[in-house]
Design a binder for these strands. Structure first.
Lengths: 122, 122
DNA sequence: CTGTATCCCGAGAGATACTG
DNA sequence: CAGTATCTCTCGGGATACAG
């Protein structure tokens, strides 16, 4: 494997993991600090429980998020970003900012492209 | 829609588009400048033609890539990054660099997690 | 409250064959 | 060379039901 600076991103090693639909959303949600499961869930619109717990488990497994469970009744689990997770957050922020800045430009490009290209009927 | 700085990324507006498996790979490939279809294809390992042309079309549609076709025989099509595309490239680079820096840490975290968690048999 | 276990479904990936 | 057209198949998303 070459270690040159950013040469051939064969496959998806471009990112450490292939992020799921919700991965970055979770990371951004945890910006303000500790959050509980259902708290996250509420703040993320209609995330299915399954998707959220899968996402959280992956993030925990990869060392981006900590999970702290309290053996109380009812149970309580806190999620938080690790140092590494906060680095991901800054990257996500960059993407988010870029998206916000250029949303209109992209939509305009899309309209233009579609206008020229679209040929439903002959 | 709120326009506050990076608040609730409802859904996937976090990114402008949901990138396909190959989107960022193409962008990074075009770092050095103009490239032709099969040239891209060769440099990207085993990308199916379909996936590549789909990816390229989307990138073109969204204004990240220009497509220049020459009516020669045999045909020739050049792909290149737009200004916007080069911005995406810098973002992709950041991710890539991060991935390279922390690949080992993540793999280590994964091993640790799996060692503690994995319980195939009782 | 915080999950796991199922089931279903559509989207995307990939292989293959064919066309301008 | 540069694609399009099909087909298959897997994976992830989403809904629902159940458990600790």
């Amino acid at each position: 494997m070459s270690t040159s600076p950013l040469d051939p991103p064969s496959g998806h090693e471009l990112l450490v993991v292939r992020p799921s639909k919700w991965t970055l959303v979770v990371v951004v949600q945890l910006r303000e600090g500790t959050m509980r499961f259902n708290e996250l869930r509420r703040n993320m619109g209609g995330v299915p429980q399954k998707s959220l717990s899968q996402t959280l488990r992956e993030l925990e497994r990869d060392g981006f998020v900590t999970r702290t469970a309290y053996a109380t009744i009812p149970p309580r689990v806190d999620y938080d970003l690790t140092e590494l997770g906060r680095e991901v957050l800054t990257l996500a922020d960059d993407f988010h900012r870029f998206a916000q800045r250029n949303r209109e430009a992209v939509e305009e490009a899309r309209r233009l492209f579609d206008a020229v290209d679209a040929r439903p009927s002959a």
